[in-house]
Design a protein around this nucleic acid. Structure first.
Lengths: 198, 198
DNA sequence: CTCCTTTCACTACGATCGTTGTACTACTGG
DNA sequence: CCAGTAGTACAACGATCGTAGTGAAAGGAG
């Protein structure tokens, strides 16, 4: 029977994300995950009996990490903020994702593309996106911004994909400056130039 | 010796793009390209002796197609245009890429991600991007818009990646309406709200 | 202690992969 | 007509893949 040990499953899922980010979908195999995790050979195939299951585990784990990060970021900011501060927050978050968490978000890109062909992945991916939208909506309200749901959706779509551009482009373009420029373009473009400057 | 027959190389490269778009990088193999192209088994491995060469061929071909398409689109519009028309052009181009040419641009996304780990691919990819930037600059000038090089660069980065979002998201969101909304956000965000309405 | 169930490490199998090599075919100039 | 050359089809190699199975360890029940 397939073992349930959650801690090991987590370790394996993290290793899978690492492999995805570094070697891409083509590099993901049970054996590669075994090596990356440092666990004995055969362990990955033992916990996730198929490659599909491995992919799904990586996707789930990535969604969890993403949610945790969102909540952590939200906890830092509670008082109402203005347009300028919103841009800064978005820009810094963009930079962190492209720089510090580069490998993980590269894995997200790989998984997003893979989800195109795997309904199961697409499901948790869109769920993750919907959660982001809901969460960001609440967050905007808490910060005193009355952004519409549709605008938030557009903002998140553009944000996620500016990230893709940053990740796949020349690495030297991953700077605080570029990230802030992008964030400003996103916010100004979606919310309008300066409807509620504060 | 490796055969030079350009026509066959083109057919094989097109088949490789098709495989990339439909099955992803993981699905790309000499044999898969043979099947997709309808050519006899072994042909792909004959023309492109390694998988790397196959990937590079797909990348080159994609760049060629992209350039051809840009020039074709440019030929349709010669007189000066205003902000509104620019948004419409961008939006329709976005829609076409996500809908009509879906498979090909999915392949571009796969290749972009792969380029992260393959310097050779990254080279032609950034060359393709630079060409787009230069081309778009000239085009903007010809259309009576004085967009700065940096703004064009940002615009193209966001454009290319809004495309990623459209491609990887739920298919039902690929509509003329969404495309135009995105285009408007891009233009307004990068160029400012309405500095030179016309 | 003994038995039994659960968890785990490890092995084995067929299939497919990337790659290279070899034989057939269709032209070239003589 | 016959070499010689370039292009093509096809076969074969070891390596790796995805998956399933098997036997050992661990831990609780009687």
């Amino acid at each position: 029977m397939a073992p349930q040990n959650t801690e090991r499953r987590r370790v394996l899922a993290d290793a899978a994300i690492d492999v995805l980010g570094r070697q891409g979908v083509h590099g993901l195999s049970h054996r590669a995950v075994d090596e990356r995790s440092g666990l004995p050979a055969g362990t990955a195939s033992n916990y996730f009996r198929s490659r599909d299951a491995l992919l799904a585990a990586a996707m789930d784990r990535v969604a969890d990490l993403h949610h945790a990060e969102m909540e952590a970021a939200a906890a830092l900011e509670t008082a109402p903020i203005g347009r300028a501060r919103l841009i800064e927050m978005l820009g810094l978050s963009l930079l962190a994702a492209a720089d510090r968490n580069r490998i993980r978000y590269l894995a997200v890109c790989e998984l997003s593309l893979e989800a195109t062909r795997r309904p199961a992945l697409l499901e948790t991916l869109t769920a993750m996106n919907e959660a982001s939208v809901r969460f960001t909506c609440e967050q905007h309200r808490a910060l005193g911004l009355d952004t519409s749901v549709e605008d938030v959706r557009t903002l998140i779509l553009l944000y996620g994909n500016a990230l893709f551009g940053l990740l796949t482009g020349p690495p030297e373009r991953i700077t605080r400056e570029t990230a802030l420029t992008l964030a400003k373009a996103l916010v100004d473009g979606v919310l309008g130039p300066s409807r509620s400057e504060g």
